[in-house]
């Protein structure tokens, strides 16, 4: 008993000393505005298009950091140790963060971007980029190209790869099976899985997007459903591949403000700046992802604009993922999906 109390006291003592130590070293730089993104070449583009110009025009120091994601944002808010102001969040993370109340509502009196369609201006985030998952094929094997229906045709022999997620895959499969984009939701999960099941034995696996790029480059697969950015990377690296817009599934990337952010006013100003057509176009020039602000498309060279998910002709062939539906149904669908995958 006594030793227990002693132990507690020791623990307390250790905690205090280490924390003193730590606080003194961590209470260093209080950046004016902290924006969390993903690092790498994408963030290099963001720095050029958003962070540096904003710092120049506003005089506010912008610190770009990495590691955004649902888990870390949740941990940050729960611990009350909010360091980030603005985060870049993909659709899935955004919806999950909204449900858990981890975000500040967007102040639309500050954020003004009429070029961004109404449905992309959400309560807690502004979509600023469109990513899409496209069907891609090896041009040596399929010089004529490939349709989504052929992707799921077991008679078309090919080594295929799909994403290791229920979303995108199910939408793609259902559209390939003839479901119109506007009738997709609520998803018919059973039907979608049945479609995928036709070619399951020809799949090398359900993989992450970085893996898919590597497999394309190394000649490991002939056909893939993967993110257009990664497909572009592979093609630029020399892969003799092409991709199409039929059945493409578009996801959005949001700007959001973390709940309890120290500089939320400044954060809103930053978001407003970043979603303006000029800045959006600039990011696309740096790294070819589709801007949500349609006015930005006009600022781009037509040859570049054509390759983007935002390009009207491309967008017409695909569908924008309904992340709200997914957020409500992810848990049950994920379970069905996991069971199916392991069968």
């Amino acid at each position: 008993m006594r030793s227990q109390r002693f132990k507690n006291r020791v623990v307390a003592a250790i905690l205090t000393t280490t924390s003193l130590f730590a606080v003194s070293s961590s209470a260093v730089k209080a950046a004016d505005l902290v924006v969390a993104s993903y690092g790498g070449s994408f963030q290099d583009g963001q720095t050029e298009a958003f962070f540096e110009p904003y710092a120049e025009t506003s005089g506010v120091k912008v610190t770009g950091t990495t590691g955004t994601g649902y888990a870390k944002v949740k941990a940050m808010v729960e611990s009350g140790n909010v360091i980030w102001d603005v985060i870049s969040a993909d659709g899935a993370a955004y919806e999950a963060e909204v449900v858990d109340g981890l975000l500040e509502p967007i102040d639309y009196s500050v954020v003004q971007a009429d070029g961004i369609p109404e449905e992309f201006r959400k309560e807690y985030g502004v979509a600023y980029i469109k990513f899409s998952q496209n069907l891609a094929w090896n041009k040596d094997e399929f010089p004529e190209g490939l349709t989504p229906a052929q992707f799921f045709d077991p008679e078309v022999k090919a080594r295929r790869v799909m994403l290791g997620l229920p979303y995108y895959n199910l939408e793609f499969a259902l559209m390939a099976d003839g479901v119109a984009a506007e009738d997709l939701y609520p998803l018919d999960v059973d039907r979608g899985l049945a479609v995928i099941d036709r070619i399951k034995d020809q799949l090398v696996g359900f993989k992450s997007s970085s893996d898919i790029q590597a497999f394309i480059q190394q000649g490991e697969v002939d056909v893939a459903l993967g993110p257009n950015g990664r497909l572009n990377n592979a093609i630029e690296a020399g892969a003799n591949w092409a991709y199409g817009w039929n059945g493409s599934v578009v996801a959005l990337e949001y700007w959001s403000v973390v709940k309890g952010a120290q500089n939320s006013d400044e954060a809103m100003k930053f978001i407003n700046f970043a979603v303006q057509p000029e800045q959006q176009a600039e990011l696309t020039r740096q790294i070819p992802y589709g801007p949500t602000n349609i006015e930005a498309l006009d600022l781009l060279e037509p040859s570049l604009a054509e390759t983007l998910p935002s390009f009207p002709a491309n967008a017409a062939l695909g569908v924008v993922i309904d992340s709200e539906w997914w957020n409500e149904n992810l848990e049950t669908v994920k379970q069905r999906w996991d069971e199916y995958v392991l069968q």
């Binding site: 950046a31 993903y38 690092g39 790498g40 963030q43 990495t66 590691g67 360091i83 970085s210 790029q213």
Partner: peptide
């Protein structure tokens, strides 16, 4: 986060868009 960045973190952070 901001003040400390280790080598593995630097290696991993770009992985989402490009390897």
């Amino acid at each position: 986060n901001l003040s400390v960045k280790t080598l593995p973190r630097k290696l991993w952070e770009g992985i989402r868009f490009n390897t």
